[in-house]
């Protein structure tokens, strides 16, 4: 796979603030690249520079090996975190407006079907629900049949049902071999959709790789979770790292069978036990020492 987008030493400084502190990575063609991090980590600033919307203080962005230019604008699709549309236009008119701006454009009927907009075509774009609006904005991002799509926190503020629907749409885009660059602060979203993720904090990338490999690299254990009242033994005599939460206890163990045997031996009730693998949330905590603020 060749890199469709390359970011080299990207820096963006504002007076008194370094929003992006020298990040470098490349995005493979046809892959889904996720930028993950809490609000204020610099994801949106970085993405907007990659989109050609903002200028960088220093550093370089290359699309297909060349600096961003007319070719990039014709072949890239974008969905901003906050995208405004023109007032008084219906869904169909909004789509047609953007459709007319591209020489090479997608088939409108197909696009409308892909984004499930059939029932909404005559509705004023200001009268859409959050999920409906995001579907329209996604359709606009796809209106030029792009080779690369940027989706900046596309599911923030959506209800769980609408988020899942949106994930299905993104899976469809991926099937067409379109490169996707996604920012999110939802770990589950990144885990499900992304082939590669870069975790950002304070303007820097602190870890990068596939979700699986990152978890393997940082963790060799699994988590056993017990309700607090069931865990009635003194924790200091146990060979595990134990994390006390408000109503539960999380025990990090290397081997589940050994741990269960030991717990039974100590007389701990395990009827309500939960066992889960390490997730990206744990990784973020491990790397930054803080919980991800969603």
């Amino acid at each position: 796979m060749s890199a469709v987008l390359e970011v080299r030493n990207l820096v963006k400084e504002y007076p008194g603030l370094t929003a992006v502190a020298g990040i470098s990575f490349s995005v493979d063609e046809g892959s889904c690249f996720g930028m993950l991090g809490p609000n204020g980590a610099g994801k949106t600033t970085a993405v907007e520079i990659m989109e050609g919307i903002r200028s960088a203080t220093s550093g370089e962005i290359l699309y297909q090996g060349k600096p961003l230019g007319a070719e990039f604008r014709a072949e890239a699709g974008m969905q901003f975190q906050f995208t405004a549309l023109q007032d008084h236009l219906t869904v169909l008119e909004s789509l047609k407006l953007f459709h007319g701006l591209y020489k090479h454009a997608a088939d409108l009927d197909e696009l409308i079907e892909t984004c499930s907009l059939e029932q909404l075509l005559d509705r004023d774009n200001r009268k859409l629900s959050g999920g409906q609006r995001q579907r329209l904005l996604l359709a606009i991002a796809l209106v030029n049949d792009p080779k690369i799509v940027f989706l900046d926190e596309p599911t923030t503020g959506l209800d769980p049902q609408a988020r899942r629907n949106f994930w299905d749409l993104v899976e469809n885009i991926k099937k067409r071999h379109t490169t996707v660059l996604l920012t999110t602060h939802y770990m589950d979203e990144a885990y499900i959709l992304c082939d590669t993720i870069a975790i950002m904090d304070h303007g820097e990338i602190i870890a990068r790789g596939s979700p699986e490999s990152l978890l393997k690299e940082h963790f060799s254990d699994v988590i056993i979770e017990l309700p607090r009242e069931d865990f009635n033994v003194a924790s200091e005599n146990l060979p595990w790292t134990i994390h006390q939460k408000i109503d539960s206890v999380e025990i990090s163990v290397a081997s589940v069978s050994e741990a269960l045997a030991r717990l039974l031996e100590l007389g701990v009730g395990i009827d309500r036990i939960k066992i889960r693998p390490r997730n990206l949330e744990d990784l973020f905590l491990e790397l930054t020492g803080t919980e991800l603020r969603a």
Partner: peptide, 16 residues
């Protein structure tokens, strides 16, 4: 108004 509400930003991302 277009600039304030971000519509111009969206147009900037197109070949226009």
């Amino acid at each position: 108004r277009y600039r304030k509400n971000g519509f111009l930003k969206r147009l900037k991302a197109t070949p226009l």
